[in-house]
Amino acid sequence: MNIFRFAGDMTHLISVLVLLLKIYATKSCSGISLKTQELYALVFLARYLDLFTDFISVYNTVMKIVFIMSSLSIVWCMRMHPMVRRSYDKELDTFRHYFLIAGCLLGALLVHEKFTFQEIFWAFSLYLEAVAILPQLVLLQRSGNVDNLTGQYVFFLGAYRALYILNWIYRYFTEKHFGRWISCISGLVQTALYGDFFYYYFISWKNNAKLQLPA
């Protein structure tokens, strides 16, 4: 465990907590893409298949359970909670995310470490996580003004993977056998997708203005 990775995990945890706070405190999920939340639930379920088979550390197991439970509860809230579901921007959240799932599944069948069930689902989860933010970014551009908590949610979500890239660089130089190009490339693509969001987020922070994404 290195500081980059720990900071990355904490930033990821903060992003989830910010989202839970927004939904719980405002009883609203306006500006949040249900499709992105569903993709993230899928990412965690596909990646943590080894939750009960490989024990790595208490930290690892606890964090996996937290991510799975939180992503499923957010999806449940947005679909079933009577107050929250009313504020879902159904007509704006129209990204066809099933194509993302199909594409990533195909990609995992073609490009993986080993042709085993667990490895293919692991590669699938990495590819899917790289693109999972797309419905959310599209929704933000469509809904124009972004409320603070939603903006912070997306910011921390992007920052976590950027920190993971520093972690992979660090591990590449400190661990002889470390070389995981599937994670690294997916992580680079994922962080790049946040590029323009980070730019407008920084501008709004510098001007102390409301975050406005160009339509």
Partner: peptide
Amino acid sequence: NNNNTVKDEL
């Protein structure tokens, strides 16, 4: 081997 290294990541 490098197989288990990244699997220790979240």
